[in-house]
Amino acid sequence: MNVHGPSAGVGVLFNPALAGFVEHHSDAVDFYSVIPERFWVDHGRGAAPRFAPLPHEVGLLERLAARKPVTAHGIGLSIASASLFDLDYVAQLKDWKRRYGFAWVSEHLAAMRLAGGAGSDHHAGLALPLPWDEELLALLCPRIARVQEALGGPIALENGVEYTPVPHAELSEPAFLNALTARTGCGILLDLHNLHVNERNLGRPARGFIDALDLDTVVEIHIAGGSSLHGIYLDAHSGPCPPEVFALLRQVAPRCRNLRGVTFEFLESYFPSMGEEGVLEQIELAREALRPPEHPPCPSPNSSAHSAT
């Protein structure tokens, strides 16, 4: 089920700053993840033609796809927007999945676009905090079924960041995700940095989230770095991952039996401070975190193994 061999692969989310990396260091990664919206202009719902490919960027995509397996990480579906469900976008994604043979497709479990009064969409500027309620589950399940029918397989949905959670939710976020995956068969893209952000800002333990989530549904893991602004820690993708993220990766990856890939994300504006060496280092650290320990940890004195002896 994974990209390469019996263990999960390690990849990087492509951005244009990595054009040289693709030429010189593709052997270092098992796959590239791409944001499909980078390769076309979307003139908006109702426009004809709606999607216009960007030739230069498409050329980059073709160079990537010639070297390594490619996965798609969409940002434009906005599947949790109650006021719109964008089937034309789904059709576009289906077409590009077929064209470039995406190994799998992921999207954000998010509401980012809202239907505007004059037929135009309003971009909310960020992913709106979601109410983890049955009402949202009822909205999402048939939509996910239609998306998966169009794509010909399961989609993986990513857990998000919240700065102001919606109060009085009926379910916890992992319980909501468990219900969603059980009802639709979709997968989870587990973003460990997002968990880290929520832990720092909201005091929600990342390990508690992981323990509550059905880890058999996790298809892909994202790792990234962040930075602080006005006392709030942001999912800024601003360079190397903090040590806490690698610690989470070491803990959770062996428990995800269907994990296919771990992807390092960063924004191109931070590439000059990292360079190709910095990206390679993050990939190697991810590989190290995925490697089984040579010497399994000694059982603790109060473990059942110790008690049995």
Binding site: A124, L126, P129, P131, Y163, V166, P167, H168, H230, I232
Partner: peptide, 27 residues
Amino acid sequence: ARARERLLGMAGDPRMAMNCTLYRVNR
């Protein structure tokens, strides 16, 4: 009533300022 109560709580959350900041940054 629940949606209204939720919005009141979120508008009063000091962290709402970060959402507003991110909106401006992203635009």
